[in-house]
């Protein structure tokens, strides 16, 4: 059985046996949970379905968060995507799907924490996009979530996936690294390439702080899901082009942990620093509490 203490272990196990990372993780998890592979595949497929439903619900232009701060932007982005924008319709639609899920989360919608609620838009923006754009089969999309999950388990064990512990790099950064590995698998890349994509995504979000305005999972969290998707795609494209990360993935995870440990408390979900401490953030906080009093 695997112990999920290094991504290298996952990659070499897969390479050695001529399997994908997802096949290795599915087989191992079935053993560890003492359930059949069919059974846990079905449970993962259900999670994919919840992601798809959240995309759909989040694209409602009238959606607003409980605080009233956010909502409705993903619908705008989806409209804009029709024009092709600067980078093409596919990419803009992928961003819109991820944003939809993150907005739906703020509106108390049903989502899959992946790995957390704050970063719940990144896997839908990437994996669900490939599925809905006809670039992979449903079975492949479900399997890609096992790849993402396997990588996430290593990061959770060796570093952290909580903003309060490691900053946003640990939440959106981890989600993006998980998505990058999943995308490489869906793009036909090797397990080793998936590891490189994971490393590249982590490197590009290293140091990102967790500074939620008014303490809510909305600003800047929703838009950080967007950058997490963009970074996942670019990391996957690099890896699929045969470009390696110079720093091995497990050392990137270790570095992320060290950066998280040395981050001051004010930048780890306490809403005392970063964007949460800007004049506009204080203004929004005041407005929100005024609204609260008004409702009372």
């Amino acid at each position: 059985m695997l112990d999920y203490t290094s991504v290298q272990e996952l990659c070499s196990e897969a390479e050695k046996r001529g399997l994908t990372i997802s096949q290795v993780v599915l087989e191992d998890q079935a053993q560890q949970m003492e359930r059949t592979q069919e059974d846990i595949f079905a449970e993962m497929e259900h999670r994919l379905t919840v992601m798809e439903e959240a995309v759909q619900a989040g694209l409602n232009p009238d959606l607003r968060s409980t605080s009233g701060l956010t909502g409705g932007d993903s619908a705008k982005l989806m409209d804009y995507a029709q024009t092709g924008g600067l980078t093409g319709s596919f990419f803009n639609r992928a961003l819109a799907r991820g944003m939809a899920v993150a907005e739906y989360n703020g509106a108390m919608g049903k989502i899959v924490a992946a790995p957390t609620a704050g970063s719940c838009g990144i896997l839908p923006g990437t994996v669900v996009s490939l599925l809905q754009e006809g670039k992979c089969s449903r079975k492949e999309a479900v399997m890609a979530l096992f790849t993402a999950g396997g990588i996430g388990m290593v990061i959770a064990q060796k570093a952290s996936i909580a903003g309060a512990q490691g900053g946003c790099q640990a939440e959106c950064g981890s989600a993006s690294a998980m998505a990058a590995a999943a995308l490489v698998e869906l793009g036909g890349g090797s397990p080793t390439q998936a590891g490189h994509a994971c490393a590249i995504a982590l490197k590009n979000q290293m140091g990102l702080v967790c500074d939620p305005v008014a303490g809510l999972v909305e600003v800047p969290c929703i838009k950080r899901n967007i950058s997490g998707i963009a970074i996942a795609f670019s990391a996957a494209e690099l890896a699929l082009a045969g470009i390696d990360s110079k720093i091995p993935v497990d050392e990137c995870i270790q570095a992320m942990k060290q950066v998280g440990d040395s981050m001051p408390c004010a930048l780890k979900e306490t809403a005392l620093g970063g964007l949460a401490a800007t004049p506009t953030a204080y203004f929004l906080l005041k407005k929100e509490s005024k609204q609260r009093k008004f409702q009372e």
């Binding site: 998890q29 846990i40 993962m44 989360n105 899959v112 609620a117 704050g118 959770a156």
Partner: peptide, 21 residues
């Protein structure tokens, strides 16, 4: 920990600590 702790839980947002907990 298993794979469904990472790809999951399925929950109502917005925050695992402020809502799900």
């Amino acid at each position: 920990m298993n794979v469904f702790d990472i790809i999951g839980p399925v929950m109502i947002g917005p925050s695992s600590s402020h809502t799900a907990g």
